[in-house]
Structure formats: structure tokens, C-alpha cells
Amino acid sequence: MTEVSGKVTLAMGAGGKQTAKLIDEVFAARFASPLLTADDAAVLEPPRGRMAMSTDGFIVSPSFFPGGNIGKLSICGTVNDLACMGARPLYLTCGFVIEEGYPLDKLAQIAQAMADTAASCGVTLVAGDTKVAGKGQVDGVFITTTGVGEIVEGAAPAGAKARPGDAIIVTGDVGRHGCTILLARDDFGIEADVTSDCAPLWDSVKAMLDVTDDIHVIRDATRGGVGTVLYEIASQSGVGVRLDAASVPVDPAVHGVCSMLGLEPLYLACEGRLVVIAPKEQAPALVEALRACPNSGGAAIIGEVTDDRPGWVVMRTEIGAETLLPQPGGELLPRIC
């Protein structure tokens, strides 16, 4: 592969020879596949059954962080959105808005992470678009990906399907991505060995669907974390949620950072964690299947769906009492004084 160096210029976004060079050297060289052509649109075989489609925009500062970069994130995000509908991801498109002056070698690393992540979950990048914005008009690189997936027959998870008595599963420890980004911004002088949980989760969903298609809800907990997702499900399904605080997996270092800043790990973002709601009797087999997958080895049952207090998430605390999990409150601000 050609080594790239130098910086992105406005000319590279002007549609001429330099644009072609940027696309060839940075993107096409890494995304190569028979489906990706120089024509105006990709021509594809339709999925066999029902189809899922999703789109997501990615902005993250910094764009490189322990455990990944914005490129990996942009693939995982859309793959996981499709997976949450029980859909095997087939095709992705990607749109880039790049700030003038952005280093080309960084851009190449981002493209490489996209290619590697896509390959690891069997999805093909079939079309793309590149725009260059003037210095200061965007922050580094913004990426939008759109994905198409094929829904596995029989699978029909949805946010409104949680039922009292269901078990609530989370596919690994919570809050790692949010904590990683917070540390990477270095606003609070805190260091900790925490890496983002950013990962594609189709394998994990597939493993669950191989156990049973009787899965009521699958959601990926991104912005707002697991806590926000649980409130959304409680509201959509008109049910209550009871969490057991002691069962929620949290990495010790994430816990340490949260204690320092007075933050709740359930509200820190994840980029590789699902909340799964399924009939209680299926839960142990689902957890076992999840734990056998590389990106959900820490799966655990963290609570249950109830018919008490519809719309609310109740926590069973370490002393055995019940309180509400505070509702999501927007921007996370450290609590010190």
C-alpha cells in the first residue's frame, strides 16, 4: 500500500485529479472490493429476507483514543445498530467531512481501522463520499456511515417488547468508552489504564440468535450509557426495571475515575455493549453463549423487568434497599464540592 504523507487540502475536495488521488491512495486502496467501483452508485444483490437499514454520524474528540479511533467507531456504530434488529450486516456506505490541514497519515490510519473492522464482521464497504471543509469548519474528521443488513428469520427484537418477568442482560462491563474519552481529553489530570469497549457485536447477536429467537429487546448502549437505554426501554414497553447494583459489571479503574469525579458509570457511554432483554428461562443460556464470544466475554444478568412503577428504573442498593436510578440528566458534570 502506498505510504501517504502531507496534509489534506481544499483542492483534494474540489473533485479533480487531487480528489481522485486522495480517494485512490487513502480509501480505495484499503476498502478494495468488487462491489466498490468508480461509478456513481453501488450495484448490489438484495438481501434474502427482510432488510434493516440504519445511518449514524460520528464525531469524537480526540479522534484517536485507547482501544480505537473514529474509523473503527464509525463501523461498529452502524453494524451494532443493525445487529440490534437481528440483522446480519451486509453493506456499508461512508461519508467523510475532513478539515483542511488534517494529516493524511492519520486519515489513512482511520481508513485502515474501518477496513479491518468491516472485514472482522463480514460487512463490505460499497460506496463513499469525501468532502473537505475549510480550517475550523469541522473538528478533524466527521464520518457518517449507512448500513444495510439482512434480518435473521424469526428474529424481531424491539424496544417495546420488554415484559414483566424478563431478565436484563448486559454484554460486558459498562462505561468504558465514556471513561476513555474523558481521560483522553485530559481535562482533569487523571490517568488510568482504561481502553474503549468499542467493538462490532454482530457475532454476539448471532450467537444469541443461535440459542433462541425469543429475544424481546436488543439495544446498544452508546451515548447516555446503559442507564439511558434502560429508561428508554421502560418507557417504550410501559414496564418497570429493577437493577441489582452489585451485579452491574464495572471495571475497577472506571469505578476509581467515577469516584474521583462523582459520576455514575451507568451513564457513561459504551460503544461495544448491548442491553438484552429476554424471558428469564432463556437468560442463562444466552449469557453462556455471549461469554463464548470475544466481544461479550463479560456478559452478566443485571436485573429484571417488573410491572411495578412503569417507566422507572429502580436500583437494589448494596444495603438491600430500593431507590430510583436518577434519570438521565444531559451533560455529565463532575461533582466535587
Binding site: I190, P252, G256, M260
Partner: peptide, 9 residues
């Protein structure tokens, strides 16, 4: 100082 892996000056 170190609080379960979170370090700070």
C-alpha cells in the same frame, strides 16, 4: 495517588 487504578497528582 491511586484509587483502584485511577491515578492523579
Amino acid at each position: 495517588v491511586d484509587a483502584s487504578g485511577a491515578k492523579r497528582e
